[in-house]
């Protein structure tokens, strides 16, 4: 090998590309950090115990919090998961393990379309389906809207993780006299379970920030919303309402609510990464 290997031009290309990819990574990271920092800076003055324990104060009074919106968002997400997770999970299992040819194509295609439906359209859809017959907005309607939005991602991520399970494991189960469904439920799904859970957590995190569908369904509420049949506040809608209001104190609370929402998503995302890493560790020794 000559001393001039590799040629100078390749060294230059290497340095340029390394710099470019590094800069892009830095750019993405800095956007996230800037948003987090800005939210904290603008909203920090509203972040106190009251913010998490009190409902909004009447206009003109200082203090108050968004407890009702935090509780509302948690209730909406619980209901959405109760609808979206079972349908997405079972649909994903069917799509990966049982559907063939035309049915698989149709399911995949319609699921991707559903995923592409603008969230505001989803809001109007559930408004027509649930809110109009009931004559009022409710947690129920909001949860249904978010639940439907969860289905496509839950379904496709479940399918992807099941498909990634090697054929050798399926054949191993069948070769021991297990039926196809026994193999799927005792070998294939356990092998993919960490990935499936991760996908679902990220799916929940994704709909947690949806605003448009909630405007038509959960609407908003300045007070606590007991039960499932009344309009409820939620963090994204609180951010929206406070941000377009003319009051400085509300602006600050909107920033703080944004910070709380983003931190929550960050925590969920980190937890799901840890779960996936643990799953990888378990299945590779």
């Amino acid at each position: 090998m000559s001393a001039s290997y590799p040629p100078f031009s390749r060294k230059i290309t290497n340095i340029v590309m390394l710099t470019l990819t590094g800069l892009c990574t830095l750019l993405v990271l800095s956007v996230l950090l800037t948003i987090l920092g800005y939210l904290l800076w603008k909203g920090a003055s509203s972040l106190n115990v009251d913010f998490f324990t009190k409902i909004p104060a009447p206009v003109g009074q200082s203090g108050g919090g968004v407890k009702n919106a935090i509780v509302g968002t948690l209730k909406l997400l619980a209901l959405a998961s109760a609808i979206g997770v079972p349908i997405g999970l079972l649909g994903g299992i069917y799509l990966s393990e049982f559907a063939g040819g035309w049915s698989a194509f149709t399911i995949r295609y319609t699921t991707d379309l559903l995923n592409g439906v603008p969230s505001v359209v989803m809001g109007i859809f559930v408004y027509t389906l649930v809110v109009l017959p009931m004559h009022h907005f409710s947690t129920l309607a909001g949860g249904i809207a978010l639940g439907i939005m969860m289905i496509p991602i839950a379904l496709r991520s479940t399918e992807d993780f099941l498909r990634a399970v090697p054929r050798s494991l399926r054949e191993g189960g069948l070769a021991l006299g297990a039926s196809k469904s026994e193999t799927i439920f005792t070998i294939v799904i356990p092998a993919a379970i960490y990935g499936i859970i991760t996908g679902i957590l990220l799916d929940i995190a994704r709909v947690a920030g949806e605003t448009a569908p909630l405007l038509f369904t959960a609407f908003g509420n300045l007070f606590d919303s007991p039960g499932w049949m009344q309009p409820t506040a939620s963090l994204p809608v609180v951010i929206y309402n406070y941000a377009i209001s003319p009051y400085d104190a509300w602006h600050r609370q909107a920033w703080a609510a944004g910070f709380v929402l983003l931190s929550g998503l960050l925590v969920v995302s980190i937890i799901s990464r840890l779960i996936l890493a643990r799953g990888k560790k378990l299945s590779h020794g």
């Binding site: 050798s168 494991l169 191993g172 070998i187 356990p190 092998a191 299945s283």
Partner: peptide
């Protein structure tokens, strides 16, 4: 089978 394929258990 050809490739050792223990179940992830």
């Amino acid at each position: 089978f050809q490739k050792p394929s223990p179940f992830p258990k």
